[in-house]
Design a protein around this nucleic acid. Structure first.
Lengths: 239, 239
DNA sequence: GCAAAAGTGTTGAGCTTACACCCATGA
DNA sequence: TCATGGGTGTAAGCTCAACACTTTTGC
């Protein structure tokens, strides 16, 4: 009953084979970028241990085999390969170019995820799983460079009009930390005074009575995000 | 070599079967909405001629079998089923819920398209292909009601920040016609004076020397759109 | 006390909105 | 001449960027 199309299949067989379906995920987290203390976007990649592209780094993912929805498959795969449970998970795009893989036709439904720094710190890292600076990637397997570029574009775009920055932070945060996220992702300087006014005007950001102690200067107030996660047809809530 | 999973396959077999891949498209065109002359969104649907959902209306689509990219498959399928060549075609979403089809697991990669009114007028219409008012649909096959809702949401959303309205018009148009498109899609009234100023401020809209004759009043100037079609990873040009 | 970040106030530029008004055409 | 949509002008109001200023902490 099982039909396997190996890489030795000839061209005619390859034309007959239905495209195989895979799920991959681009996972972003914020990390301190060296000694400067400046935050930057990082993402985990897994090393290919078989052909094609053996030895190259690739997005975590795998075939869609189990009896689960696309979103569930992405979440499970993430957990299996990196140990991460994302704070935010959304479909990015379905990539279906003819020559994405040299051996067979693969259609990849790609998700993108944001994880909190505490999550990211706990993440498995091993010989075959490593975090990389999202803006400085070498050549990846398949078309994964283009996929990461598109995910970065989407993240930066969405950052401008949506409340997703908070999914890169913990439950409590200072307004300056939110600004750090925006500055790191959008790679720009923002006026602290005006930025905090904007945030205080959004009702989803709620002031707590707590203050962040232990800093060098005046302790900033801690806030909490109380908004809905995201949109999309699968988990629709607010535009 | 060909493996067929029929609807008589038992549950265990269904779990083993790889999900099949289909392409569907939501096609929008603007039509006069009855004698009022007010424009509204319409879309073509095809009647199911076999089970499941035999007799119900559904989005045009079909399995991804040929050796072609997702976008090409959507365009070809559109041409085959409705005779339309869309002015604008973009991926909408990949729908992969477990119970979208009662007989087998299907993952549908859905595109959405905009066609000009001249195109739409030429479109085949028959016993099994008919145009419907996009806001007043009966029960469709599969989860196609939800898909159309999402496509409508995307269209309305994108209308607000992107220059896609022109793909619902012909090559030459008056500024009032553009306003009609916005008013029909967003279902709101817009100040003619301010609206035309906004349009004149966008450099992609180019005034021609021509005027639209034959109206009841002062002949309005005709304009032309000179912008790029769209974004997305497959046909990336401008954000 | 001093440095530095937290947090507040103020002002001017630019954009949107509402609406008054002129223009050109068919009937 | 009049009704109507095409097209222009303008002033009030709002938002936002720039930046001066006060507050509170660690050292």
């Amino acid at each position: 009953m099982k039909t396997v199309y190996t890489s030795s299949a000839n061209v005619a067989e390859r034309r007959l084979a239905p495209p195989s379906l895979a799920i991959s995920t681009v996972i972003f987290a914020l990390r301190s970028d060296g000694p400067s203390g400046r935050k930057a976007l990082w993402l985990p990649l897994v090393r290919r241990i078989r052909e094609p592209y053996k030895g190259l780094w690739a997005l975590p993912g795998g075939p869609l085999v189990h009896d689960e929805s696309l979103q569930d498959a992405a979440a499970r795969n993430l957990r299996d390969t990196t140990g991460l449970a994302p704070e935010y998970l959304e479909q990015l795009y379905a990539f279906g170019g003819l020559h994405r893989s040299p051996t067979q036709r693969v259609v990849s439904i790609v998700y993108w995820a944001l994880v909190q720094p505490t999550e990211a710190a706990l993440a498995d890292e091993s010989e075959n799983v490593r975090w990389f600076h999202a803006d400085r990637l070498d050549e990846l397997a398949f078309d994964h460079n283009a996929i990461v570029d598109y995910a970065l574009w989407r993240l930066r775009n969405k950052m401008a009009y949506s409340s997703i920055a908070y999914h890169l932070l913990g439950e409590f945060f200072t307004l300056a930390q939110v600004r750090e996220v925006y500055e790191a992702v959008l790679d720009c300087r923002l006026d602290p005074a005006n930025f905090r006014r904007q945030l205080k005007a959004t009702p989803e950001i709620e002031a707590t009575g707590e203050y962040l102690q232990g800093g060098k200067h005046r302790p900033p107030r801690l806030y909490r995000f109380t908004g809905a996660p995201g949109l999309g047809p699968d988990n629709r809530s607010t535009p």
